[in-house]
Design a protein around this nucleic acid. Structure first.
Length: 609
DNA sequence: CCTACTATGAAATAGTAA
DNA sequence: TTACTATTTCATAGTAGG
């Protein structure tokens, strides 16, 4: 598993690899200042506690980080004078000083001039295009690089009206700071056209923190804009960075901590285990609820995603649980929360735990060579009719057991699409009501009320497995015998609400934030059908839920006891072939709104006490 | 517009054998 | 260790038809 993460010295291509290190180094240092750039003031979660609680004044600490790197103090002072207390800019200047100091006349021969590209006629774009084409003439680039060059080209050449738009200039600038064009472009798309430089840097940092410590990425050959444009002293800087990285590696011997999934994926314990191996965990005083919070997302996210999530949620250890230990269907998810984990209890009645129990009618048609006892993860799309037809034709040619090859083919697709046997030689996708049952929802929960069948699959596929979540939330029943106030973000079809209700936790006030109207209707309808006595307040968009609104809500309901939600997994899920972009993806980056809202709720509530 | 249907791999992980 | 195999995955985009 562990590939070569020690930076061995291969001079041929290693400069690319080292370049990634270079970026890491920048980000490591920049990040400490990123939190300071935040204007909201309450975002202290991603700072390490020591730094903020230390009595060392900020300024000296700021200087010290460069002293540790081995820069002379006068250079540091000069760099700070030029750039202010912005780590990345200061570091950039320092390295430029150093590079120029070492060899005043030496300029890399391949360095193209930067200035012409800032002019504002079409030749500039043409020039960049040529440069980029030339760079990519080299066939040592991997296909990854091909994708990358397309991104870069698009960044430069998209807007034909103005050859160098504001966006392009900003891209150039970020590129010069050492950020990959791809990331910079995403950041600018996400932050909008009016975003300031600190905002963009902050975004890129947040998005990239995960990858900064990702050992695999060291092999990933991705050039960045800085190298394409090769600014002043770039070569020397690179060398400097290499040394810095080595020094840093020597300093930090043990860090390299990536989150690992537990081998039986049972989190802090499951109810059916004969020997409950409950784990003791001690949370810092500050983060013990109320408000309690509960965050959920896919367990098998791209590398580093869960590290980032953890970092933004108080460094609490997530618990990874596969719902196959609760029901007949697998669902590998990570749950990060500050709930107590002692004295949990499961939801009753216990759901069926095997396919045969869950779908008794299928037993009759189930061939012996299909040895599945659990279904795979229920997703948002179902298998095609054409596929089930092909399977039928493939199987019905044989009287008894089909040959191994056929079995293999059929099983592969049955597992991939969660097909079940519904007749002689006939397989089919699950019906929506079967999915409801497997996920722990009442029958017809998503049925009717103007939702299409396709959307039922979609909403269900994006939902909680109720029994699993309820097991974790069960501790709330005794904590809040008089009921709780819930802030439910990304509510979907109300998995959290259903879980609490089925646990017997009275719901006093539920503020539910959900973008999809049909989903809101489903929850509203369920709320009325179950004769809830509390209040259900709906909101549309988490991004529009401001601190002021939260303050008013908290005042009117008397504070939230639970903030619960699973942010979009679109850009994290393995089934996404198109835009598995990680936490910075278009939808999945809404995770940062979860963090923002949770922080706001905590700070508003602590002020009221 | 809505709805249903279909084609579309890669990344991450664990396990195993060399 | 390293290289190979096996398994799994809260999805998107395009098309056709109403």
């Amino acid at each position: 598993m562990d590939k070569n993460l020690s930076g061995e010295d291969n001079d041929d291509i290693d400069w690319d690899t080292e370049d990634e290190l270079e970026i890491q180094e920048i980000q490591d240092t920049v990040f400490s200042s990123c939190t300071d750039l935040r204007t909201t003031g309450q975002h202290v979660v991603c700072c390490d506690g020591e730094a903020s609680s230390s009595s060392v004044p900020f300024r000296s600490k700021f200087i010290q980080q460069f002293v540790v790197m081995g820069f002379p103090e006068e250079s540091i002072a000069k760099a700070i004078e030029q750039n202010g207390e912005n780590s990345d800019l200061v570091l950039d200047s320092l390295l430029t000083f150093k590079a120029l100091d070492d060899s005043p006349e030496e300029q890399p021969s391949v360095s193209p001039p930067l200035e012409p590209s800032i002019s504002s006629d079409d030749s500039a774009s043409e020039y960049n295009k040529n440069v980029l084409d030339n760079v990519y003439e080299d066939d040592s680039w991997s296909s990854d690089s091909d994708n990358y060059i397309n991104t870069v080209k698009q960044c430069y050449l998209n807007d034909e009206g103005s050859s160098l738009s504001e966006k392009e200039k900003m891209l150039l600038f970020l590129g010069n700071m050492g950020y990959p064009a791809e990331e910079a472009s995403i950041a600018m798309d996400r932050c909008g056209p009016k975003a300031s430089l600190p905002e963009l840097v902050d975004f890129i940092c947040a998005a990239q923190m995960s990858r900064a410590e990702d050992p695999y990425l060291l092999e990933d050959v991705k050039p960045n804009l800085k190298d394409i444009l090769n600014d002043c002293g770039g070569y020397k800087k690179r060398k400097m960075y290499n040394e810095l990285c080595k020094r840093k590696k020597q300093r930090e011997i043990s860090v390299e901590e990536t989150i690992r999934l537990p081998k039986p994926m049972i989190g802090f314990g499951i109810p059916t285990e004969s020997v409950p191996r409950m784990v003791q965990r001690i949370l810092p005083e500050k983060i013990i609820g109320p408000p309690y919070f509960y965050y959920e997302n896919v367990a098998l996210a791209p590398k580093g995603v869960w590290d980032t999530i953890k970092r933004h949620l108080y460094e609490i250890e997530p618990e990874f649980v596969d719902s196959k230990y609760f029901s007949a269907t697998a669902r590998k998810r990570g749950y990060l929360h500050n709930l107590p984990i002692e004295n949990r209890f499961p939801l009753f009645p216990l759901p069926p735990r095997t396919i045969h129990e869950a779908l008794p009618l299928s037993k009759r048609w189930w061939p012996s060579w299909d040895t599945r006892s659990k279904l795979n993860c229920l997703q948002t799309a179902i298998g095609s009719a054409r596929l089930t037809d092909k399977i039928r034709k493939a199987v019905e040619k044989y009287d008894g057991e089909p040959p191994m090859e056929i079995q293999k083919y059929v099983l592969y697709h049955c597992k991939k699409w969660n097909l079940v046997w519904v007749g002689r030689n006939k397989v089919a996708p699950l019906e929506p009501d079967e999915v409801e049952m497997l996920l722990g929802f009442p029958k017809n929960h998503t049925r009717g009320g103007g939702i299409s069948r396709t959307d039922r699959y979609k909403s269900l596929g994006n939902s909680f497995q109720v029994d699993t979540v309820a097991y974790h939330l069960s501790v709330l029943r005794d904590l809040f015998p008089n009921g709780i106030n819930v802030l439910s973000l990304f509510s979907g079809i109300g998995g959290a609400e259903v879980a609490l209700y089925r646990l017997g936790v009275p719901l006093n006030n539920v503020v539910s934030v959900e973008k999809s109207e049909v989903n809101r209707n489903i929850v509203r309808s369920w709320w009325e059908q179950t004769n809830q006595r509390g209040n259900l307040i709906h909101f549309d968009d988490v991004q529009l839920l401001s601190r002021d609104q939260l303050k008013k809500l908290i005042e009117s309901v008397g504070g939230f006891d639970l903030v619960i939600g699973g942010s979009p997994c679109n850009n994290l899920a393995g089934s996404n072939r198109v835009s598995r972009d990680g936490l910075e993806g278009r939808e999945s980056s809404l995770f940062f709104d979860y963090v923002r809202i949770l922080d706001d709720v905590k700070s508003i509530m602590s002020r009221h006490r």
